[in-house]
Design a protein around this nucleic acid. Structure first.
Lengths: 186, 186
DNA sequence: ACCTGAACACCGTTCAAGT
DNA sequence: ACCTGAACACCGTTCAAGT
């Protein structure tokens, strides 16, 4: 049971609170706008407090990215479970829409700075998420490696280019329809 | 003619010197490892000196990214000029190899933080580079918009996934051969 | 066990002042 | 015109000290 104390962070929930607030700031400002000191200020805690729960800023970002991969994997699982007529196409659309709906989180998941640190938890979460993809797509042996990589590259590239604003919508065009047209050619 | 003075930056070449040194640091450390103060130290100038030539750190990064898009466009022009049997495939391979050979520069060119600032020079350089692509590929009207975007997404996605280490090489496999196999299916 | 306060070594940026 | 020196408001991180 939670107490009515106004210093609830002695009760072990600071870590979770930090992650939740950080996810909100990330969604609004992007990773570069997420500072540990500012985060501590928002949460109402001293600048040193987050270090009880995360080794470093990079460790916090890793935790956020891991959350992102888990949500991503869940979205993929869900669309597969719904037994769509063409699973590959359905997953491709979900992949791109997830990126658009979680733009800054998606960018963090593939951030080179995070990868540079070689954090093992991130790679594990990413591998787990993509294993979900692989098993759904190649589980029956219908696709070879080259075809699977081609499909992945196309879907991922589409997501990244739209996020970057490189693929812009034209007058009278609908982004979801455009995505569907491109993914349908898988 | 250059002087033998040991303070050559009164002669108007500090801007160019900064860009050259910054490109080297970028290649080694990535954008997050490029600090203006460190850069000034390496060049042998005060921390405020770069501000005579660049409005901000973001303005310097933009200049580097613009240089990147110019080199990228030049690489694309060159491969088209060599009249390859299949221009689309040849450009695709050059696209991916450029990304691998200039990893940190390529990442900067598509950096969300840079885009976030809405710097107009960056968008112009990017548009010019991709116009080169478009005119080479769609100039004869053989490709429609969907096919062109599909090819672009696939090539760009392949580059990004390899850079991120998501597409790893297997035993006895050669990365260039793998790229060729994937691009050949364009 | 968990958090605070103060400190250290950095940043990006500005601005008066020097040549 | 171009650069310096010093300052300001920030960082991430560490560490002794408090409860």
């Amino acid at each position: 049971m939670s107490t009515l104390s106004n210093s609830p962070y002695h009760h072990g929930n600071l870590r979770q609170t930090i992650i939740e607030v950080a996810l909100k700031i990330l969604a609004r400002e992007g990773a570069s706008g997420l500072s540990l000191r500012d985060l501590a200020r928002v949460v109402g805690v001293s600048p040193a407090a987050p270090y009880r729960h995360f080794d470093s800023r990079a460790a916090l970002l890793e935790a956020l990215a891991v959350t992102g991969f888990q949500r991503f994997a869940a979205a993929m699982q869900e669309v597969v479970s719904s037994n769509p007529p063409d699973p590959l196409v359905a997953m491709g659309k979900t992949y791109v829409l997830f990126a658009l709906d979680n733009a800054n989180l998606f960018r963090l998941m593939f951030s080179p700075d995070l990868k540079k640190d070689g954090r093992p938890g991130l790679k594990m979460a990413a591998d787990a998420a993509f294993e979900t993809l692989r098993s759904a797509v190649g589980g029956d042996g219908q696709m070879n490696r080259i075809k699977a990589l081609s499909a992945w590259a196309k879907v991922h590239g589409l997501a990244v280019l739209i996020l970057d604003g490189q693929i812009a919508i034209r007058a009278g065009e609908d982004m979801e329809a455009l995505i569907a047209e491109i993914i349908d050619s898988l």
